[in-house]
């Protein structure tokens, strides 16, 4: 039996869903952390060009990239407990779904981040490093003070893109019973025997759209802040100079 479309129910649904954004963001933040750390290690391995390690990194990235997120999710959900139990004697029965979700999306994100970081570092002219060495900086100092800040700016747009992809792929986490906004939405539909499904999906769509727009804005601001030599400062400076000439 289907109830008629109820426009106002969309807002009711949004209010019911809102608290579950906490889980969505928790999953996102932990996956970004894990994925970025792992991705940095992979990128570093590839930059150093040690044949064996690079080969391993390439293989790993290939495997993860070629795996549909939902397949990887179930591989981790069913496979990891087996490995942990047989290999290390760790019982995962009481582990929350968040654990498996974060592991999955960290793995996914790390493969993307490895390429994002590697290409950003590779984009920096090697003269930057040489100039730093020539005035007596160590390799490490040159990397941290000169190369990394510039690479971060280059990586930022790609990072933002990957993050938005991750946000959307993250909606799959409900399939293993993780209750984030998506999971809650599915539960609400189920509890009402499929009634108001359309309203709830519209509510979910609105939520994901808003988060994406919000993230895009944040990253645009960050790009301007981190790129001190780009348009932003020039405008600010010319404004300052104009004011100076007025006096």
């Amino acid at each position: 039996m289907k109830r008629p479309f109820d426009f106002w129910y969309i807002f009711e649904a949004i209010l019911d869903l809102l608290p579950y954004l906490v889980s969505t963001f928790m999953m996102l933040i932990l996956s970004i952390l894990g994925g970025t750390i792992l991705g940095s290690i992979l990128a570093w391995t590839k930059i150093r060009r040690r044949p064996l390690a690079t080969g391993f990194a390439d293989f790993y990235i290939y495997i993860i990239r070629a795996c549909p997120p939902i397949v990887l999710l179930f591989l981790v959900f069913y496979g990891l407990p087996e490995i942990l139990l047989r290999g290390f004697g760790i019982d995962t029965n009481h582990f929350s779904q968040l654990f498996f979700v974060v592991i999955t999306f960290s793995l996914l994100f790390s493969a993307t981040m490895a390429e994002v970081i590697r290409s950003a570092v590779a984009a920096i002219d090697k003269g930057q490093r040489e100039a730093a060495l020539s005035i007596g900086l160590s390799d490490m100092q040159a990397f941290i003070r000169i190369i990394l800040p510039q690479a971060t700016i280059i990586a930022l747009p790609n990072f933002a893109n990957s993050l938005i992809v991750l946000l959307k792929e993250g909606a799959l986490a409900y399939t293993i019973g993780f209750i984030d906004v998506m999971g809650k939405g599915i539960l609400m539909i189920g509890n009402q025997y499929g009634a108001h499904a359309l309203e709830i999906y519209i509510a979910l769509g609105l939520l994901y759209w808003s988060i994406t727009i919000f993230l895009e804005q944040v990253f645009q601001k960050m790009e301007m802040k981190f790129a001190p030599d780009k348009v932003y400062r020039v405008e600010k400076r010319s404004e300052k100079e104009r004011r100076k000439h007025e006096f």
Binding site: D125, E130, A131, I135, G136, Q141, R145, D229
Partner: peptide, 28 residues
Amino acid sequence: TAFVFQNYNLFQNKTALENVTEGLVIGR
């Protein structure tokens, strides 16, 4: 020693002043 490059190789993320102080503060 110090090196002056054909393509200048100034640190793009630092101002003219910071380019000069970098070698003093960090290197020396």
